[in-house]
């Protein structure tokens, strides 16, 4: 769950960086630093999305223990 808050904060940070860069008030050094930071965060975010794996499971109570099994939909 930590990852997910990260993602949201990262998105906010990306927006913040974009705004800062777009006002053009920063000096060149800071601009370049912000640019690199933004690119890094953006990469992290897309990595999270790309590395996710599709999983559709069903939790089954097996004598008081929860088991996670692949969920296969019944044909109707």
């Amino acid at each position: 769950m930590g990852k997910e808050t990260n993602f949201e904060e990262n998105m906010k940070q990306l927006e913040q960086i974009a705004k800062e860069l777009e006002t053009g008030d920063l000096d060149l050094d800071t601009s370049v630093k912000k640019f690199e930071e933004g690119m890094k965060i953006s990469k992290e975010c897309s990595d999270i999305l790309e590395k996710a794996e599709k999983k559709i499971t069903m939790l089954i109570n097996d004598n008081g223990e929860l088991k996670e099994e692949n969920f296969v939909q019944e044909e109707e």
């Binding site: 990306l14 927006e15 860069l21 053009g24 601009s31 912000k34 953006s42 897309s46 999305l49």
Partner: peptide
Amino acid sequence: DVMLKLNSYNNRYKLALKKKI
């Protein structure tokens, strides 16, 4: 959408830096 947004940030950064330079 999220990917698009991420890309748009990348583009915004590039544009902003280019403009700055």
